Every structure is written in structure tokens, then in C-alpha cells.
Simulated assay, not measured.
Amino acid sequence: MPKFGPTKAAIDLNETHIVPKIPTPIRLQEYGVGLFRAAFTKSALKKALKKDYVTVNGVLATSGTFIRGGEHIELSIPPKAGPKKKLIFPLRVLFEDDYLAVVHKPAGILVSGNSFKTVAKALEGNLRPSGHVDATIPWPVHRLDYATTGILLIGKTSSSIRNLNRMFEDKAIKKTYYAVTIGSMERSGQINAAVDGKASQSEYTQVRSVASERFGQLNLVRLEPRTGRRHQLRQHLSGIGNPILGDQIYGPDNLILRGKGLYLHAHSLQFEHPLAPGEPVELKAPLPLRFTKLFGDDIVWCFFFILLF
């Protein structure tokens, strides 16, 4: 006997989706990522499934439900009290089409989460609605730390969000960062220290260095993380004795630069467009002036190098 979901009378938020023809069956908990604005992420969708908020053809779905094409999926969430405030927060849009967008994340704001002020909640007020058939609310497909600035990739359709998530998992998206580090260091190297017990790898190249009365030496460093652990670059650089300037977690207490923020910047992303395989995309977020100002007369050279690489 099928178990049916809640009645329409009890529903405050009701979203529906009709599955188009798909090549192979896929689990709902994978297919449904980015499908419904009220259960947008994979973890949120799992919670909605556990709470019996999702039905497929009128029957309550589970994490084991497979989608084969043609199904009617419905998300039904009981009412919550209180009006929802809209966040107005201007973001610099670096690129946008119907499938994805790239914005510049400023320091001092979370990418997503339960806080009212997040990049995710500000996206609708900064991006054009997608005209694609599976358009959904725009959503970040990766994270940057609260204090980190730079390039942030956004999906605007359900299919692009799924594809971009898969590309990050498969390491098909190349990320480049720049940081200002403290202390004398090798010109280049690879760091393989585990982060939180997991295998991790980062590569670095010293671009410029300058003597500093307070810090001994400051370095502009180009970084390429090969894995994506939380705080990976910060931990790796601290671990080799070259913490990032302004790092209040992994930097030494006597060398904290207060009031200037963390000198870590997500500079570029390289990947194939998720809806046009074989079409290369390279997107960059300009380096903040506060970085290059530290290197005095070398500022023009720094900008030239970073434009090339």
C-alpha cells in the first residue's frame, strides 16, 4: 500500500518538477540537487526526504528512489511563521550567461549558511533570471572562507549545478589563488601534508618578495590546490613556516596584522563549460590593490605577471 504525502491544505511551500527524458536512471537525491529552492543543496534535499516532504507521482520518496524520466516530483513543506526578509547586497558580476555566473566575493561575508547575510541570499538581486527550461535560483557550487576574496562560481540551472558539482568532485576545474606569505621561502614547491587526516596537495610559486621591517620578508605567492580541503592553503603554508599575512587562525600571534584582513585571494577558474563540452572557459577576479601595494615599485610587474598567468 503506497504511503502518500501531506494534503494541499497543509502546504505553505509547494514546488513541482516534471522530469524530462533522461538517458539513464539516477537516484532522486542526486538528480534533485539544485531543483527546488527550499531544498537546494544535497544535504537540504536529504533532510526533506527524511521529513517526508518529497513525493514522486504522489508517493513519498526516499533516498533510494530512482528517477527514470517522466515523473512528477513535488516538494511540499508545512508553513512557517514570519515573513522572509530579502537581502540587498550589491555584488560585482564578472561573467554571466543563462547557465552559470561568476561573482567577486568580498571579504567578511559567508558564501552560504544560516546567517541572513550570505552571498547565496544576495544572488537573486544581482543576477539575471535564466531563460533555460530547468532554470532555478542561482546557487554557489563551491565555497570560499569568510575572510577570503575572489572568484566564486554560481550555477543558474539545475543541470549546470549538478554538472559543476560533479566537475569539482572529479577535479576537472582548475583553481588558482594568490596569497601574501610571511618569511623566507623556496621559489616553488609542492606541499603534501594531510589536512584533517585526509590526503591533500598544494603547489606554490613565489612571484615576488620584499623585505619587511616588521615581518622580515613578504612574498606574493601563486597557489594551485590539487585537492579541496577546508582551510587547505592556510594550513599548508603555515605548516612550511610561511603563514598567510593576516591569518588569525594559523598565523603566529606576534605577527597578526589586525584590521587588514586575510591576504588570500581566489584569482581564477579554468574548466569546460558544463553545457558545451570542449568549450574552454577561463575566468579571473582581479587581484586586490592592497596585495600589490605591499611590493612598492614592483606593482606594475606584479599586475603584468598576474594578467599572463
Results as ranks from 00 to 15, higher is better:
3 K>A: 14
5 G>D: 12
12 D>L: 09
17 H>G: 04
18 I>R: 14
20 P>L: 12
20 P>M: 11
20 P>H: 09
28 L>R: 11
31 Y>W: 15
31 Y>F: 15
35 L>P: 05
35 L>R: 06
37 R>Y: 11
39 A>P: 02
41 T>W: 01
42 K>M: 12
48 A>W: 02
60 L>T: 03
70 G>F: 12
71 E>P: 00
77 I>N: 04
97 D>Q: 10
106 P>V: 04
119 V>D: 05
123 L>C: 05
130 S>L: 04
131 G>R: 15
138 P>R: 11
138 P>A: 11
158 S>Y: 00
168 F>N: 04
172 A>P: 01
172 A>W: 05
175 K>S: 04
179 A>N: 08
186 E>G: 07
188 S>D: 12
188 S>G: 09
201 Q>R: 15
202 S>E: 09
204 Y>Q: 10
206 Q>P: 04
212 S>I: 06
215 F>S: 04
217 Q>K: 15
219 N>E: 08
229 R>H: 06
242 N>W: 11
246 G>Y: 04
250 Y>C: 02
255 L>Y: 08
260 K>A: 13
264 L>Q: 00
270 Q>H: 14
272 E>I: 03
275 L>E: 00
278 G>Y: 04
285 A>E: 03
285 A>G: 06
290 R>D: 14
305 F>G: 03
305 F>Y: 00
305 F>M: 06
307 L>E: 15
308 L>R: 13
